[in-house]
Computed example of a mutant assay.
Amino acid sequence: MSHHLLLIIHLLSAAIWVGGHLLLVFGFLPQALKEKNQIIILDYERKYEPVGMTALVLLVITGILMAYKYGVSIEYWFQFETPIEKVVSTKLALLLLTVLFALSAQFRVLPKLEKNAEKLPEMTFHILSVTIIGVLMVVFGSFVRYGGL
Rank of each mutant, 00 (worst) to 15 (best):
I61S: 03
L136G: 10
E35F: 13
V135T: 00
L97D: 04
V130I: 12
Y76S: 00
Y146P: 09
V87P: 05
S104M: 14
M53S: 01
I39D: 13
G148H: 08
T124V: 10
P121K: 12
V138M: 06
E75D: 15
S129W: 01
L128N: 07
Q79L: 08
H4D: 15
R46P: 10
L22F: 05
L94C: 11
G148A: 02
I132W: 07
A105P: 03
Y146E: 02
V99C: 04
L65P: 10
I41G: 08
A32E: 05
F143P: 02
L97R: 06
K69L: 15
A15W: 04
L92R: 02
Q31E: 15
L33I: 12
Q79R: 03
L42G: 07
V144A: 14
H21C: 01
H126A: 08
G52S: 13
R145H: 14
F26Y: 15
G20P: 03
H126Q: 04
H21I: 09
L12R: 08
S2P: 14
V144C: 11
S2G: 15
F140Q: 07
L58V: 10
A67P: 02
V51Y: 10
H21F: 02
I127W: 10
F28M: 15
G134N: 01
S73F: 08
G52P: 08
P50Y: 11
L103E: 12
S13W: 06
L97P: 02
L149I: 05
K36F: 08
L42Y: 04
E35P: 07
L59M: 14
K34Q: 14
Q106R: 12
E114I: 14
L6D: 03
V139H: 04
M53N: 04
K69V: 14
G20K: 06
F107C: 07
H4E: 15
T82S: 07
L96E: 13
H4G: 14
H10N: 15
M66T: 14
V25K: 09
I132Y: 09
K36D: 01
F140A: 08
G52H: 03
A105H: 10
K34H: 14
G141P: 03
P30Q: 01
